[in-house]
Design a protein around this nucleic acid. Structure first.
Length: 415
DNA sequence: CCTCCACAGGAAGCGCAGGAGT
DNA sequence: ACTCCTGCGCTTCCTGTGGAGG
């Protein structure tokens, strides 16, 4: 008889899976000493009753931005008697209103209700900050805005917060903005930019040696000793470094590899488990991207995969050259896309917009396109799927069918 | 050489949804 | 509840590009 006790006592390579979660904050952050110091430098004035500088942090995903900031703020909290900082994930609090609400209710319990206008939060916060703590220290509020690029009306938010600083006679409020969009700074209003970016830190991607050490550290904490081969760690680090230097991805690989080892009951993580994990992780990643794609981008992708799989395609056209290269011309793909649209009972978008879709898909890495330099026509693009077309097609058709049943459209199956 | 072809991508404008202001 | 405004997804129109073919 299976019960929870037998499940829970199953042997496993894991000591503590939490250690491998992207939200885990380790005590020591390898190769981020300089960044930690810079953040501390920016925050430190708060401990001396001075206004901390605003700080802007950017770097690609998995470079430890959030982790480092959380680490520093944890240290900061040890030094303060009263709560002085808020962590706001802007993915959840994605407007000026929501951010202000979150800040407000963190410090003022009576604001923990809905229905107040933004000016109400503003006034209450002003009042709150201006009254010093019982020990006579002024209030030095630090707001950490993670994924700050998700805030729709960021310029207004930054403006509101900076104006707050100007209006109060004592105390202060500072911001730490975190984003992974490098180009993000450019779309910012110049005024917001100058106030938000008083000081800046760039987090560079990890290389394979650094990733290796990070992984080794987590392995020590998260896995049973002796279950993970050194070469497996190296491989996971190398794969992640080759991609983008994303530590989160590297950790995901290890987590999945561990699960595979448990499933196989081999309880040993070698290169092979990591390789398998890689396929698995990539697939689910691509699957996630595809599933969240807008309908028509999915349809374009179906058209591409469909044509790519259709071996006879270029033979019928008699274009042996393209058959060998197995590349598709953008015009043909558009025609196929229109056909697919008819089959799914949807009105095709214009060719102009279809080109825009192609660009989107390329940005996401789902397809690759090459400018046709020679051969056919002026400039046109050759299109290739970025991943296994068969696998993509499967995911695509699944998610199309799902959305069809949701919208109660009858599925035309003569595809 | 000119024109046509098949495409890329910019500019303008349109209809709609949702938020702000009244 | 009502307008007004704005951003978004999209279409239409247009200009530019470079080889093919007359």
């Amino acid at each position: 008889m299976q019960n929870f006790d037998t499940i829970l006592t199953l042997p496993s390579v894991f000591l503590d899976r939490n250690v491998l979660s992207p939200h885990f904050v380790p005590d020591v952050l390898p190769y981020r000493e300089k960044e930690i110091e810079k953040i501390m430098l920016a925050v430190a004035p708060a401990l001396e009753d001075q206004r901390p500088k605003n700080l802007f942090i950017y770097g690609k995903t998995g470079t430890g931005k959030t982790c480092t900031v959380k680490r520093v703020m944890a240290e900061f909290r040890k030094k303060t008697i009263f709560p002085q900082d808020v962590y706001v994930n802007c993915r959840m609090y994605n407007s000026r209103y929501r951010v202000m609400q979150k800040i407000g209710k963190t410090f003022i319990s009576e604001l923990d209700k809905v229905g107040f206008g933004i000016s109400h939060f503003y006034e209450k916060l002003l009042e709150y900050i201006q009254v010093p703590y019982e020990n006579g220290n002024q209030k030095r509020i630090i707001v950490v805005l993670d994924e700050i690029d998700m805030v729709k009306d960021l310029d207004e938010l930054v403006y509101t917060l900076t104006r707050m600083n100007d209006e109060i006679s004592s105390g202060s409020i500072s911001m730490i903005g975190i984003t992974n969009k490098i180009s993000f700074k450019e779309v910012l209003d110049p005024r917001s930019k100058s106030s938000l970016c008083e000081s800046e830190i760039v987090f560079s991607p990890y290389n394979s040696i650094q990733l290796r050490e990070i992984l080794a550290q987590r392995v020590k904490l998260g896995f049973v000793e002796g279950t993970v081969h050194d070469s497996a760690i190296n491989l996971a680090a190398a794969i992640a470094a080759q991609e983008t230097g994303d530590a989160r991805y590297a950790l995901k690989l290890l987590l999945k590899a561990g699960e595979i080892a448990d499933e196989k009951k081999s309880f040993l993580i070698t290169d092979r488990e990591v390789e398998e994990a890689r396929k698995n992780v990539d697939n689910t990643l691509v699957g996630e991207i595809i599933k969240t794609l807008p309908k028509h981008q999915q349809l374009v992708l179906i058209a591409i995969c469909n044509l790519y799989n259709n071996i006879g395609h270029y033979q019928r056209l008699g274009q042996e050259e393209n058959l060998e290269e197995n590349r598709l011309l953008s015009g043909e793909v558009y025609e196929e896309y229109c056909k697919i649209c008819r089959k799914f009972k949807r009105i095709p978008r214009s060719a102009r917009w279809y080109r825009e879709y192609l660009n989107e898909l390329e940005m996401l890495g789902l397809i690759t396109t090459v400018e046709s330099s020679k051969g056919l026509r002026g400039h046109s693009r050759f299109i290739k799927p970025g991943y296994e077309p068969q696998q993509m097609l499967q995911i695509l058709l699944e998610s199309q069918q799902k959305s069809e049943s949701e919208t109660k459209v009858i599925y035309d199956s003569d595809l």
